[in-house]
Design a protein around this nucleic acid. Sequence first.
RNA 1: GCGGACGUGGCGGAAUUGGCAGACGCGCUAGAUUUAGGUUCUAGUAUCGAAAGAUGUGAAGGUUCAAGUCCUUUCGUCCGCACCA
Length: 877
Amino acid sequence: MRTVSNAAGVFSLESRYNPGEIEVKWQQFWAEQNLDQTSVESDKPKFYALSMFPYPSGNLHMGHVRVYTISDVIARVHRMQGYRVLHPMGWDAFGLPAENAAIERGIHPSKWTYQNIEQMRRQLQRLGLSFDWSREVTTCSPDYYKWTQWMFLQFLEAGLAYQKESAVNWDPVDQTVLANEQVDNEGRSWRSGTKVERKLLRQWFLKITDYAEQLLNDLDKLEGWPERVRLMQANWIGKSVGAYLEFPIVALDEKIGVFTTRPDTVHGVTYLVLAPEHPLTRHVTTPDQKVAVEAFIQEVSAQSELERTAEDKPKRGIPTGGKAINPFTGEEISIWIADYVLVEYGTGAVMGVPAHDARDFQFAKQNQLPIKVVIVSERDLTIDQLDAAYTDPGFLIHSDSFNGMASTEAKAAIIQAAEEKGFGKARIQYRLRDWLISRQRYWGAPIPIIHCPSCGTVPVTEADLPVRLPEDIAFSGRGPSPLAQLEAWVNTTCPACGEPGKRETDTMDTFIDSSWYFLRYPDARNEQEVFDPAKVNDWMPVDQYVGGIEHAILHLLYSRFFTKVLRDSPGSDRSASGGLLNFDEPFQRLLTQGMVQAKTYKNPVTGKYIPATEIDPTNPKDPETGEALDVFYEKMSKSKYNGVDPESVLAKYGADTARMFILFKAPPEKDLEWDDADVEGQFRFLNRVWRLVTEFIGSQNLSSGSATTSPGQELAKPEKELRRAIHTAIQKVTEDVQGEYQFNTAVSELMKLSNALTDSSKDSPVYAEGIKTLVLLLAPLAPHIAEELWHNLGYSDSVHTQSWPTVDPAALVVDEITLVIQILGKTRGTIQVPATASREALEQYARDSAVGQRYLTDKEVKKVIIVPGKLINFVVA
RNA sequence: GCGGACGUGGCGGAAUUGGCAGACGCGCUAGAUUUAGGUUCUAGUAUCGAAAGAUGUGAAGGUUCAAGUCCUUUCGUCCGCACCA
C-alpha cells in the first residue's frame, strides 16, 4: 500500500472515502476542542442563527435533518466569514404526547421526555451540526419553567393576564378542555372520539389584542420574512375600521351595541341579530318566545365552532319578540338571534342591513324581513327592489340629511353625527382574539397563582418560583386535571394573608414556553434572573430564523407579542425606566423550509396506502386486489408508509452525503422529494472530491518541487482558465450561501469546480489553489469530509476555523469573450473576440465572421445593437 | 368567495434580472476498464428532421432589435383564510 507523509502524518493513499470512520472521529475532535461553543470575542460582529427547537418525540425525522442542516450551513459560513455566531439548540419539551404516554403506558412524562431528549440529542449530534450544546434549554426543566412562570407574572403585573369566562371545547368523556385543532371536522375529540361540547369555563387569557395594532404595523419592518407569512399574520389580526353604534331596546333601559364597517348604511337597518350566547338574549326575549329561544340556544351550543362556521351553512335564527329603535330613523326594528353571529367577534351583535350585505340579504329573504335600499349606484336613482345585496360604494338615499352623499364620505359623516347625538362612535375592530392559555393538563408549566378565599387571586411571589410540578402523581386520563386531584399540592397558604389557599391547577399552553426560548440562549445558565438584558440586547434580534411554515401564525405571532411586552416591561427592576429589551421584533429574517416528501403508493379505489416494499416499482399494483396504484409524492409519514429513517441513511452514506443531498435537491423553501438515486449521486460526488484531493496529495509527494509557481510569471492560458474557474466558484458559492441561501446552486458550483479540476493538469501551478479552495468552500456543507481532506492536505488547524476564501478580481478578468451574433434577434453563431474590443471593432469582427458573411451579404443592415461583452444583433431589411 | 404562490426536458431543478433556454445532478443510451456484480471512465441525451434547419419555458395575444423574464387575457396546480358584521 502506497503511503504519503506530510505535516499531518502518514496515511494511506488507497484509503477510500469511509464516512462512518471519519465522521465519528471529527465529531469527537470538535467536541474536545469545544469548536462549536459560541465565541464571545466582542470585536467580531454578531450573528444569531436559530432553527426552531423540536418537540422531543423520540425520533428524528427527515424534516428535522433538513431544518438543522440549513441553519448549520448558515452558522458555519458566518463563522468562516469572521462573525461570532450563536447557534443554539433546545427542547420544546412540555406537551400532550408525554402525558398520553403516561396514560397509555404508565411511564412518567418526565422520564419519557428526558429519554427522548437523550436519544434525539445523540441523533442530532450524528449529523455534525455545530450547535453550542452548553446553552441547551429544556422547557420542562424547573430551571427553565421557573422563568416561564416569571414571564406570566410580568404579564399579570402589566395587566396583560386575566381570567374570564369563555366558551371552550369540552370533552365530556376525558373531562378536559381541548384546543380547536384537537377537534376534528365532525366536532369529535381526536382522542376519545366523543362529540365535544361548548362549555363556559373560567380560563386564563393573555391580552394579545392590546398589541394588535403594533403586531400589524411592525410586519412592515420584517423585510426578511416571506411575504406570505406576513400576509397570513395580517389576515389573522384582521383589522377592520368602522363604528360602534347603540340601539335602545324598547321598554327596557338598555341598549344593544353593534360593530359595523358600514355606518353609511345605518338608515337601512331593518332588524338586529344577537349571538345566541349574547348576555342580553334572555332580557329581550318576550314571554311568548321564551321556549323557542331557549331551545334554539341549546341546539346551537351543542355545536362546535367548526360546525357553526362551516362553509355555506344556511343561516338559522329566530325572533326574540323584542324590539329596538334605530336611533337614526326612530323606526322600531325586531331583535333576532341567529347562529351566524359570533359572540367572540365585535360586540356579539350585528345590525341587519339586508339591502347592502349579502348575509343579511339571505337572512332577510329567509325570514321575510323588510329590505330597505339606502345606497344606489348613481346619484338621484331610486330603487326599491333588489335581487341581491348591493355592496359596492354608491350614493345615499332614504337617509334624511345624508341623501345624495357618496357612501365613502357618509361613513365619516354618520360616525360624526352618531358621536354628536350619543348614538355611537368610531371604532377599530380586530379579528384577533385574546390568547387562551389555560390547559387542564399536567405536563406544562403550572400557572403561578394562589386562590385565596379572602384575598382572591394572588400571584406566587417571585422568591417562591418555580411552582414545581409534583412528581408523584397518577395518570388515568379520566376525571379532573391530574394536578387538581392532588390535594397535598393544591392546598397551600396565601402569600398575601397567610391563610389557607388553593393553587391554580391549570398549566400553561406550551406555546408560552416557546414564545421566549430564543431570549434564554444568550444567557442560558443564569440562575439569578431570566437573562442579563445586556447579553440579550447584544445577541438579539435573531439574524436568521429557520423553521416550518406551520408556525406562520401561532409561534411566530406569540413570540413577536412576548418581545413587545418585554420591551415595554421593566422586569424585576421596577425602578428602571425602559423595558427589558431594546428591540421591537425578535426575528430579523425568516426562512420557512419546505417539507420532505417521499413517493407514496395509493390504491385509488380503496384509498389505502401500500408500503413500497410490497410492490414492484416498475408496475405498482395493489398486492391484494391487483389494482393499479396512484404514485405521487407526499410528506413523509408513518400512515403513508413512505418515511425514510435518517439513521439508516446515515448508516449507509454518512451525514455529509445526507446533508449534501438535502441541500442540493431543492432550494430550501421548496418541498423536497426524497430520491435514493439522488442520494447515491451525492455520495458519488463526495467520492469524486475525495479521489481528486487524495490523488493530488499523492502527485505532490511524487513530484514535489516541480509544480511551483515562480513569482511574477505570466500564467499560461489553461492555468488562467483554471484560476478563473476557481474564483468564479468562490464568487458564486459566496453569493449563494449568504443572503438568498440557494444551497442547491452552491453545490452545483462546487461540482463545476470539481469538474474543472478533474479536467486540468495536476502540474498546473494553480491546481493546489483549486484543491484548497474546493475543500474550504465545501466545509460548511459537508463538514466532516472537508475536515479530513484539509488535514490530509497537511494543515493541523480545523478547516472550520479558516477564513472564507475571497475573490481575486484579477482572476476573473478575461482576455477573450464569446460574442453572440444575432440576425433579427435570432442567434446564428458565436465568435471569440478580444475582451477589450471597441463597439466598432466588435461590429467589424462580427461582419467579417463566417456567420456574418453568410447572413449579411446582400442584406441591408438597418440597425446594429451591441451589448458589449455579450452580443451583437443585426437588424436587416 | 377573498388573498397568495407557482406552471421550464423522462425527473429534481438552473438561467448577471430583458441578451446563446435547459447550468448542475438524477435517469437513460452507447462504448471502455475491471468484474461474479456494483464501482470507475468516455461520449451522447429538449422536440421534429438523414441533414441543413425549424420549433420550443401551461395557452392566446401584445410591447421590444431581443421575452422563461415585462403587459393583457385565459387555463391548471398548490397553499392560506373563509358567515369577522
